[in-house]
Structure formats: C-alpha cells, structure tokens
C-alpha cells in the first residue's frame, strides 16, 4: 500500500506487506485519523495515490474500497444506535453476503449473514446481548460491537482507529485479545492507531510514527522506540 501527499497529511509513503500488523502512533493532530480517512476514501487526496492488494484505489468511493477488502472502525464509535446488536451485525454481514436482497423475505432469512453475525458477536464477547438496543450498550460494549460490525464485513485489511479509547481498564485486555485473534487466527492485515505504548509494543510487527502530518519513522517496534528523533518528537512529549 502506497500513499503520499495532502496538506494535512504530507509526504506519507509506506507499504504494508500482507498479514502484517502495523501501529500508527503520533501526537494529537499528527494526522493519524486523516490518514485513515484518506485510506478509506472519506477524503480524497490532492496528490498521491492509495494502493490496496495490488490495485490503485485512489479514485474509488468508500463502498467500493470496502468491497475490495478494506474495513474500518471509527474513533468515535459509530454503531447503529436504534437497532439491536444482532441487527447491527446482521446488516454488516448481509452487506458482505449479498445475493439475498429479496425484499419479500424477512431480514433473518439470510442464513450465511445470520451465522456470520452470531459468530462476530460471540467473538467480541457480546453473545447473549443480541436483542439489546445498541444505543443503550455501555461504551465498552459499543466498541466491541463496532469491532463485530467490522468483522462481519470480512475485510482483508483492517483499519482500527484507537480501538481501546474510552474502554474501561478491565475491558482493554478483552479488546486486545479480540484484535490478537483477528490477526493471528484470521491472518488479516491490520493498521491500528493507538496511544498506549505497551499495546503497540505487544501487538505490532511495524510501528509508523506520524508527526505534523509527515511520516518520521517506520520500523520494528524496538527500532522505533530506540530512534532518538522519535523519542524527542513523540515519546518525549508524553
């Protein structure tokens, strides 16, 4: 995946080999979320290109990128608050198991979607809460649901925007376990924005450091932590 050029995000060019786990760190306003918006197609770059699985996806609208194997979670949890958790995941699953948009049938008839939805809820630890309205879930549960929705889209490349932000201390390990599973069992490629350095250190194969919209380091966790520039620009601040 290559990328380059925008005013907020500038001169960020890196490639993520398939199956790797890359963390993106950087101070607030470094352009981490903007980078995700560029990758997922919510913003279009003024210059440069985005490549996904060997194809140039720069001109693709967001939904087409998703069909091409990209999935994304949001920093501010964006579940469908008025629907139940099962409806949330089933909606995501039916999007990736199309072919059954028969509107003369109930939404529960799509068996593949139903199973995928149940599996995703089980995976993130929301089994038993299928009928709870998403808007009334605790914040931690909403983040889990957010992740479950993402799993239902069956992406090859996942963009996780601070998956543990706002999650209570005792729930963080649960979230990390889910993410670890996605990566190890499912063998997906993951890009994750994260602030917690221990989390980054444990999970990542590579760490990318952004500062003022530019990529200042991109290496293994150990090498990045040792980099004097990174220590002053990022670690020194916090």
């Amino acid at each position: 995946m290559r990328f380059g050029g925008a005013t907020i995000v500038d001169d960020v060019s890196f490639t993520v080999p398939a199956g790797l786990f890359v963390s993106i760190i950087g101070p607030n306003g470094a352009g981490k979320t903007s980078l995700f918006n560029l990758l997922s197609g919510l913003y279009s770059p003024s210059a440069g290109s985005v490549w996904l699985r060997g194809d140039d996806i720069t001109g693709m609208p967001p939904f087409a990128r998703v069909r091409h194997g990209l999935g994304r979670s949001f920093q501010l949890t964006t579940v469908f608050t008025g629907l139940s958790t099962l409806e949330n995941t089933r909606l995501a699953a039916q999007a990736s198991h199309p072919g059954n948009y028969a509107f003369w049938r109930g939404a529960g008839h799509n068996r593949a979607a139903r199973e995928r939805a149940a599996w995703a809820l089980e995976t993130v630890g929301l089994a038993g809460k299928e009928r709870v309205v998403a808007g009334s879930l605790s914040h931690g549960d909403k983040r889990k649901l957010d992740l479950a929705i993402l799993l239902c889209s069956e992406p090859e490349v996942l963009l996780l925007d601070e998956p543990t932000a706002g999650v209570s201390a005792e729930e963080v390990p649960v979230m990390l376990e889910v993410i670890r599973r996605i990566r190890q069992v499912e063998g997906k490629t993951v890009l994750m924005v994260e602030h917690k350095m221990d989390v980054v250190h444990d999970l990542s194969d590579r760490v990318a450091v952004l500062a003022n919209g530019a990529l200042v380091a991109y290496d293994t966790p150990a090498a990045v932590m040792a980099d004097p520039f990174v220590r002053s620009a990022y670690l020194g601040v916090t």
């Binding site: 919510l42 939904f63 087409a64 998703v66 069909r67 909606l91 999007a95 929705i149 239902c152 889209s153």
Partner: peptide, 8 residues
C-alpha cells in the same frame, strides 16, 4: 457513513 463503510 457507516453503511458506506460496510461496502454498500
């Protein structure tokens, strides 16, 4: 927007 990010 989230619907769009489901690939629809």
């Amino acid at each position: 927007r989230r619907v769009e990010m489901l690939g629809l």
